[in-house]
Design a protein around this nucleic acid. Structure first.
Lengths: 331, 331
DNA sequence: AATAGACTAACAAACGTTTGCGAAAAGTGA
DNA sequence: TCACTTTTCGCAAACGTTTGTTAGTCTATT
């Protein structure tokens, strides 16, 4: 590759002038600038990102810490992130912290080695608050998705889980169901807690009894939804509707019900949460609660970009996104 | 962050010694090495990747050019790539060339700016051979997935599409079907051509007539499978089995059939290609041809790593992966 | 005791940029 | 023409590493 010096030599100027010319900086004659640009094009010059970043202390790349890139749930968030990162000329660098987020490694690989300017951390199953505190302390700009933190300095993006769960449960109630089961997400994490709370609220508002037997702990995975549903189907009296903590578990529920020989929605209704791409294709198509995942991804990068640009007010943003009921045919 | 100089000062040695000590290089006394390592730990030193790469001319990151990261088809390939990249300490950097691969941009952003040491290019819909030739000319190490190129210098990984299609069609024939339709992939690309060829071969081997009316051009998307199936169902006589060019189109087929009021597999059988994660969950679970996507991803990085390591024989590797029939309940 | 050889550590250059500062050149107004 | 301002450019340092070469210090051998 041609370097800035090659251009300088060919143009008969010094390297600094070339740099200024190519970066549209003040202080170089328009004629020489034109000449330099011309030569740069001829030589197919493209700046060495490493050298540049080394002095500017900016890499124009954002690290994305995510449990599993290939989870369908995250794919649209990622797309959303890309759309705004792209436009701003930023690159996205994923940390493949599949299951066990070895926090130190990520911090090192991405932040300490100065490969990224900031971080987007997505997923509520990343529980290590210590990790987050570290970032705060080291003054690394970052934003959290799917996680709500009280600290006024941290940027958080989340979805109104309580509201969404209420929406789902209300809809079932409105359809005449009174024995409504709920398969929760992974035990102990915020999303699970909030959705369960919303479910209870809806029951309470409708003066429906809360039956602990109708609550099963899941894991956000297909398997968990399947297992929980099989258990629920044994109950007497059987629930007439199941509110699954997410779509993936709802798929498991659908499968279990189908194997059990019951029909959806006639004999038992199922509603999910998330609205994954695939939920249009289940049999029957899944009624669910949509999370604006694309927008959340966009928002995350927007915020981060603003704090990277040094805009004061962009610090400590708390953005809650609304949910939406998507009616299909499983209720 | 602490730099190498901070450590040098604190240890009372020069920066070069620190570098050598930390990199386990020959020529530094064991006592001073120990001392330096100790101090580095205290200071929480972590090397600046930019500075290091600038002089070593290695970034230890691999660029992945892929049409759409979030495509479920690619997710397992990506996982496979990660497993071996991780172990080797390499980072993966994705180019989000969603639809239109603007080749110049990618070359610039990743290669010319020296952010990556090599490239993995996945997806047969990346047709620009010009792009590939550019890489060859600039001597960028790269490997292609899902693309077969004759040039003896390029590394290619693909799956035995003809064989897979034969497997699928044979299985349908074996199950007694004689009126077998095929929904092809996107017109004109190699994968589509090969699978169609395999289908025809199987028909010929079984001395079954080839009926052009049973061939429909799809697009590898759900929509295309849906549309094509609706057309096929109007035919008289109707095909009794459909071989979809990939699973996503098979999902569309399943949906169209269900809406049409026919039952799978009793009245019409469906077989796919790919074996996506989701194919276990369709109704009925989809019989399909599995591609070892995880292994293909692994292999790609393995090859690239070998050529990056300068191992001669690693140049021009052609790796064809076998397919496998996965029997479920849609046939 | 002298000298060769082996260790150890420092020096300095290099990687390709950006950028503050100063110097030269050009332009301006009287 | 002179003094002054403005424009244009070059110099040099800096970013944080790595690495070839050199200088110095031991150790061992004679």
């Amino acid at each position: 590759m041609a370097t800035i010096k090659d251009i300088a030599k060919k143009a008969g100027v010094s390297a600094s002038v070339v740099s200024r010319a190519l970066n549209n900086k003040y202080g170089v004659n328009e004629k020489t600038r034109a000449k330099i640009i011309q030569i740069a094009r001829e030589l197919q010059y493209y700046p060495n990102a490493l050298a540049r970043s080394l002095v500017t202390r900016k890499t124009e790349t954002i690290g994305v810490v995510i449990a599993d890139i290939s989870e369908p749930f995250y794919s649209r968030i990622i797309k959303g992130m890309y759309t705004v990162a792209d436009r701003a000329g930023y690159t996205l660098l994923f940390s493949n912290s599949y299951e066990s987020l070895e926090k130190t490694n990520i911090l090192h690989k991405m932040v300490d080695s100065e490969r990224v300017d900031g971080l987007v951390i997505v997923g509520s199953n990343i529980r290590e608050t210590e990790f987050v505190l570290n970032l705060l302390q080291e003054k690394i700009p970052f934003v959290l998705i799917e996680r709500k933190l009280d600290d006024p300095k941290v940027n958080c993006i989340w979805v109104e889980n309580e509201e969404g769960a209420r929406l789902a449960t209300d809809y079932l109630i409105q359809k005449g169901h009174t024995r409504i089961a709920h398969i929760t997400g992974t035990h102990g994490i915020q999303v699970t807690i909030d959705r369960l709370a919303g479910y209870k609220q809806a029951l309470a508002s409708a003066r429906l009894p809360f039956n602990p037997a109708y609550i099963r702990t899941g894991d956000f995975l297909h398997e968990g939804g399947y297992r929980a549903t099989r258990e629920l189907l044994q109950l007497n009296p059987r629930p007439t509707a199941i509110f699954a903590g997410n779509d993936t578990m709802a798929y498991g529920a659908l499968q279990a019900i189908s194997e059990f020989g019951l029909s959806v929605p006639d004999e038992i209704a199922v509603i999910g949460f998330d609205d994954l791409e695939f939920s249009v294709l289940t049999n029957p198509p899944l009624t669910t609660i949509r999370q604006p995942r694309f927008e959340m991804g966009k928002k995350a990068i927007e915020i981060l970009l603003r704090v990277l640009a040094g805009e004061e007010e962009a610090s400590g943003v708390k953005a809650a996104f609304p949910t939406e009921l998507v009616v299909r045919r499983s209720v």
